[in-house]
Design a protein around this nucleic acid. Structure first.
Lengths: 344, 344
DNA sequence: TTGTACGCGTTATCAA
DNA sequence: TTGATAACGCGTACAA
């Protein structure tokens, strides 16, 4: 479906009676063109509203000047997660500022590593590099790595592998969240939500929770920990509260689960924070808008996205020489109204 | 940054001692190749893990087999709007299933129509067509239309223009929402939220509200209508409630504003729905998860996104001949627990 | 400083 | 059915 004949460097060359090589050099700011002629060419280019043809250029330069964002989760899940949405926004901003185009696709686990199921833009090399956000199939990452494709993992890492990553300091964050409750005087603190809980981000946050308890001289009680999906956060909290009425504080694996837990407390007519304090993780927009507003560990999602994109673009410039960085973003304690002193 | 020499049809041709033309035909399922040779070529292709080069192909076919998603809002605003996120997901699904790649960019108003500020993939014709989601600068739409680019407007339309659009039936939806409250016995019904309110979706929903009142023989009172941003939905509702304590029902321009209004009611210690009923619009995930769960007008966002992508792809196939469709999706009343009979 | 010409990988047209 | 070859638009090494 093409109606319009686009102008090419050939047209410009013809109009000015110069050679296409000269036009190409002028347009690309390359040396070897007199200032005068260069100006004339530029003027003619805008006059004819010339736009470079990405295909032709890519064919010779072997570069696309676009990068791909690969989601580890199903698209709707990915986008409806405010954490990932923030990272996406950061990536988009940085990408645009560097005049790269951005492609999007999701690589769900079912899609396996068979090429046909991998996003088209990866298979067909239509991007110079990849930003992989969230947990994707290890096999895919290995495949990409072995075929020397440039990529950066965001909010995910393969323990023990020396890959380019941008992640949150979950361990310290989980610890800080717990310490906040401890400092308020809480002693019976539960941990809710998170799947999986035996590895990944939530595991690290849980580990931070354990560390904080230990440092405070409080025994870790496995029965005060309940994993589960977001909606399950509600049920998990109900279970816990019914079985362990001594609980006065809850550390949630993320804000969504924290909000679900607050819903559960409401079901039991328990007040937040008078009866039970709740702290989340991520600082999604809803944390501020909810009632009561949610104390949480803030992660600068935009900055993470931007940083990841920066690293990728740098990698693309430096080429193979570039040594992998592992960048860790801190989580900052934000105290709002869902946490307070424990009930007497 | 290329480390690997990709195999081309030339390699396959050489390996099998046939001509590249033959290889091309075989690989593209074109006639003119013996079944036997075709099979041999296919086998060799997988053996050498051949991947077509999009640039080379695009250069000759003038097609990219990718489409662009253009957001009318700033990326973070766009993504954090569950309505748009749903549409995005629908678009992505449909696009992937048709084996098209998807590019993303936002066209905020400040970016004006100067080419340099338009997303790269549009300027450089790196997509075959565009899905424009939400309100973008009219000048951009005109520009695209005049240059005969293929595009579909989603959740937006230019009144009076015969463009390809996929929108929600806001008028009827606003009417249904209001009628729901009327049928419960409410007589003092306010309308909150929405910017702008003098045009676009929210205007149409407001119009539906007016129509419903009129049909019920209830005078429209301008003082019961308050526009405003989402966060402002809270303040708008507070204003209204303080000035007009007779209000027993609220129609919100969308779910986000409805939830904000509920927050406002809580601030005034008014119960939902016992004291005041609230109904939203869109049926975002939070509508179901909130407390009380929100009655709303459901819009099938995924289906809208899919439909829009379908139309675009069809347009691309049919070419100029394709007459613009204006597709209108209904909004379905979902009754949850935020609406009930008015207080006595 | 400017021009020439080749090649990037593919499709398509024509001839064999 | 198969082969040869000319585009497609651009960048660039080399020649002038």
């Amino acid at each position: 479906m093409r109606y319009i004949v686009r102008t090419t460097i050939k047209d410009i060359a013809k109009a000015l009676d110069v050679n296409i090589g000269t036009v190409s050099r002028a347009l690309n700011d390359k040396p070897g063109v007199s200032a005068e002629l260069r100006k004339k060419i530029m003027r003619k280019a805008t006059e004819l509203s010339y736009r470079p043809n990405g295909h032709a250029r890519g064919l010779v330069t072997q570069r696309t000047e676009s990068i791909g964002l690969l989601s580890g989760a199903e698209t709707s899940t990915f986008l409806s997660n405010p954490f990932y949405a923030g990272i996406f926004a950061g990536i988009e901003a940085e990408t645009r500022e560097h005049n790269y185009a951005l492609m999007f696709a999701s690589a769900t686990t079912e899609s396996s590593i068979f090429d046909g199921r991998l996003p088209k833009f990866i298979v067909e090399h239509r991007v110079d590099g990849l930003l992989i956000v969230g947990a994707v199939d290890e096999a895919i990452i290995r495949l990409l790595n072995e075929s020397h494709r440039a990529f950066v993992l965001v909010d995910y890492h393969l323990p023990g592998e020396d890959l380019e990553t941008v992640v949150t300091n979950n361990l310290r964050g989980g610890r800080s969240a717990t310490e906040h409750l401890l400092s308020l005087g809480h002693r019976h603190i539960a941990f809710v939500g998170g799947t999986p809980l035996d590895r990944g981000n939530f595991h690290e946050r849980l580990q931070g929770y354990r560390d904080a308890l230990e440092s405070a001289g409080i025994a870790y009680r496995e029965e005060l920990v309940r994993g589960g999906q977001i909606v399950g956060g509600h049920d998990a909290a109900l279970d816990l509260l019914d079985a362990h009425p001594e609980i006065t504080g809850i550390v949630a694996c993320n804000d969504a689960n924290a909000l679900a837990a607050i819903g559960a407390l409401r079901t039991r007519s328990l007040k937040v924070p008078e009866d039970v304090s709740v702290i989340g993780f991520d600082d999604i927009p809803a944390a501020q808008e909810s009632w009561p507003s949610l104390s949480t560990m803030r992660v600068d999602k935009i900055a993470m996205g931007r940083k990841a994109a920066q690293r990728l673009l740098q990698k693309l410039e430096e080429g193979e020489a570039s040594a992998p960085h592992q960048i860790v973003f801190p989580a900052e304690l934000i105290v709002r109204s869902s946490t307070g002193a424990p009930r007497k």
